[in-house]
């Protein structure tokens, strides 16, 4: 597609500068896209195992909780867990990966997970809480990595659109416009030359 431009030498120079810049930008964006993809794939590989582990452990913990719930009355469960003994604060800061701001969770836990007496509770409740406690930090790690992956995926998508726009729209248009202006200028030059030759011929005849 031709860009709106006057076929002048000045415009040609300007367009050539733009083309050079676009080619350089394209290369940089392409490199960025490749690096983002590499990091993205690393994280995806890393998270696959983590997600499976977390899902499996959560499933086990909930199964154990159901078992505990089956041997305790609803009131006993509510009473036992009414006042949690462990407190978890999650601080959220950010870090930059290829200029993408991704979250960094910093969990701080204090207190004990076992917050109940032993007379009216089942040992299965201990088992399920221990499993939940063990999975909690990995759950946060999973959340952090998944959010990072989502943000990287967005950035990859955005970068790919830019690369494609440069590669398939802007650079071809610039090239086409440059060729058009070059041809137009050559055409002008040829017509000038022809005109001058004609004038010279007429002058010689006189």
């Amino acid at each position: 597609m031709l860009l709106a431009a006057n076929p002048t030498r000045m415009h040609l120079l300007r367009l050539k500068k733009r083309l050079k810049l676009a080619i350089r930008g394209h290369k940089l964006l392409k490199d960025k896209q490749d690096e983002l993809m590499r990091r993205f794939m690393d994280l995806v590989k890393q998270i696959q195992g983590l997600r499976q582990e977390v899902e499996r452990d959560l499933h086990r913990a909930f199964e154990r909780f159901t078992m505990a719930r089956s041997v305790m009355s609803r009131a006993s469960v509510e009473e036992a867990l009414a006042l949690p003994g462990k407190r978890l604060d999650v601080g959220v800061t950010t870090q930059r990966i290829m200029n993408v701001e991704v979250p960094l969770f910093e969990p701080r836990a204090e207190g004990r997970i076992y917050c109940y007496g032993f007379a009216n509770t089942s040992g299965e409740l201990d088992v399920s809480l221990r499993s939940l406690d063990a999975v909690l930090l990995r759950l946060l790690e999973l959340a952090q990595t998944e959010k990072t992956i989502m943000l990287l995926a967005d950035e990859i998508d955005r970068t790919r659109r830019r690369v494609n726009a440069l590669e398939y729209t802007l650079i071809p248009s610039l090239k086409e416009t440059i060729r058009f202006i070059t041809m137009k200028l050559e055409e002008l030059e040829r017509s000038n030359l022809t005109r001058l030759m004609k004038i010279k011929e007429m002058a010689e005849e006189r």
Binding site: L83, G85, Y114, C115, Y116, G117, F118
Partner: peptide, 14 residues
């Protein structure tokens, strides 16, 4: 008081 200690004290008293 810790919740576990509270429960245990009440159970012991009972």
């Amino acid at each position: 008081i810790e919740p576990q200690s509270l429960d245990v004290l009440v159970d012991k008293a009972m």
